[in-house]
């Protein structure tokens, strides 16, 4: 191990070169689609189909492409929908999951074990499985093609319940007992004692919830007809269909804009993203 402090041996140097060559090439492949996306979003149509590919355009078309993306289609509306929907979903998930997780982790009641078994069973069910019955339910309720229809199925996250329950189990019982003696009721304990201790887990869950729901395509595709309700991925498809696959510049501009919130959030909070995904293994 102390080799590193001395001058590198030829074998070590060869290995380091190999490591950087392989990982470097891999990184290029991983990042290439992003680079391509941004590069095209900067080019006028003539250059996009030019026989030789260049990274940067000769004539910049930022204004044309991004302007077109926002003007020809309600891209801003898609983004707003994305934020509104992901926020509503996360708020509902936290509001239902936290009290339930506390009851599962810290209270003694008949039905606790059974409830937890059902939570675990729920974890096994991929979200697409419930699509047909939920579609029928939304139809019966007459709320197809509304925000409610998009949000409702995700209002409950068994994954969130499970994650928070595991976290709450690590909170010492004495803390809760002290709170009861200090005069807090069970609801106050959830919000004033458990929630603040669970902030790291809640952030991790929030990030995952945001990533999933921002990128969710399957369910909105099923329940949303109106363009003005579309979350970003569905909006992009409306966009692509409307432009008939020719206006690559504006389309890539729109793709860049839709990707931007997640990518920027990831770059600024890398640790949280990776820890969150690792902690939870993703659904």
């Amino acid at each position: 191990m102390d080799r590193m402090t001395r001058r590198m041996s030829p074998a070590a140097f060869a290995f380091a070169a190999f490591r950087h060559a392989v990982l470097g090439l891999g990184s290029v492949l991983m990042l290439a689609p992003f680079v391509l996306m941004v590069a095209i979003s900067l080019k006028p149509p003539g250059e996009i189909f030019a026989p030789v590919f260049t990274l940067l355009p000769e004539t910049w078309a930022i204004w044309e492409n991004y302007g077109a993306a926002f003007q020809r289609q309600p891209l801003a509306r898609f983004l707003f929908n994305g934020f509104a929907i992901t926020f509503a979903i996360f708020a509902l998930q936290a509001l239902t999951a936290l009290p339930c997780a506390y009851a599962l982790a810290k209270l003694r009641w008949r039905g606790r074990e059974t409830t937890f078994v059902f939570v675990l069973l729920g974890l096994l069910i991929p979200p697409q499985v419930t699509a047909i019955p939920l579609y029928i339910l939304m139809w019966q309720l007459g709320i197809l093609d509304t925000y409610a229809a998009i949000v409702m199925p995700s209002a409950i996250s068994v994954f969130g319940i499970f994650l928070m329950r595991q976290f709450f189990r690590t909170v010492p019982d004495d803390l809760i007992h002290a709170a009861r003696l200090d005069g807090l009721g069970e609801f106050a304990i959830v919000w004033r004692i458990m929630l603040p201790t669970a902030i790291p887990a809640l952030i991790a869950f929030g990030i995952l919830s945001f990533v999933w729901n921002w990128n969710e395509f399957f369910w909105p595709l099923i329940v949303v007809q109106s363009e003005e309700l579309a979350p970003p991925p569905l909006g992009i498809v409306f966009f692509a269909n409307a432009e008939a696959g020719t206006a690559y510049g504006p389309l890539m501009a729109a793709a860049t804009v839709v990707n931007a919130p997640l990518v920027l959030a990831f770059l600024f909070a890398q640790r949280w993203f990776i820890d969150g995904v690792t902690m939870t293994g993703v659904k």
Binding site: M30, F34, P233, M252, N259, F266
Partner: peptide, 15 residues
């Protein structure tokens, strides 16, 4: 290597 995990697959599909 992790960036693709967080990207919006739909948008990237068009790329």
């Amino acid at each position: 290597f992790f960036l693709p995990v967080t990207s919006t697959l739909l948008a990237m599909a068009l790329v």
